[in-house]
């Protein structure tokens, strides 16, 4: 039988892969958004594993809302990306420094 710790360790590995992706893809906003998606899927796997092992459906409801928010985030993020490309002609993160942050 697969134990709960197997699922939790799997999702932590996926989470860390998403984190490394954000570290090494610092110049490409599209890949950054995809790494955020990967991290969200890892978190959702955590929720579903606990929901299954505790016999409580509230975790699956939570995943439902996370999927909704992530879809909205991607839609607005890609809209901002398209706008950035139209204004700057590039989606390089290094170019977007006009706020001097």
């Amino acid at each position: 039988m697969v134990s709960l710790s197997d699922y939790l360790i799997l999702s932590s590995i996926i989470f860390c892969i998403g984190l490394v992706g954000i570290f090494i893809n610092r110049t490409n906003i599209i890949t950054l958004l995809m790494c955020v998606e990967l991290i969200l899927v890892a978190v959702n796997t955590n929720f579903i594993a606990f929901s299954h092992f505790l016999g409580n459906e509230a975790g699956q409801i939570f995943v439902f809302f996370i999927l909704t928010v992530a879809a909205a985030e991607v839609a607005i993020g890609l809209a901002i990306l398209t706008l950035l490309f139209r204004v700057r002609g590039s989606i390089n993160v290094d170019v977007t420094n006009s706020l001097k942050g």
Partner: peptide, 15 residues
Amino acid sequence: SIWILLEAEFLAITL
């Protein structure tokens, strides 16, 4: 597929 293994069929199809 892993979610289906955890009996969360609706969320797996939604994903």
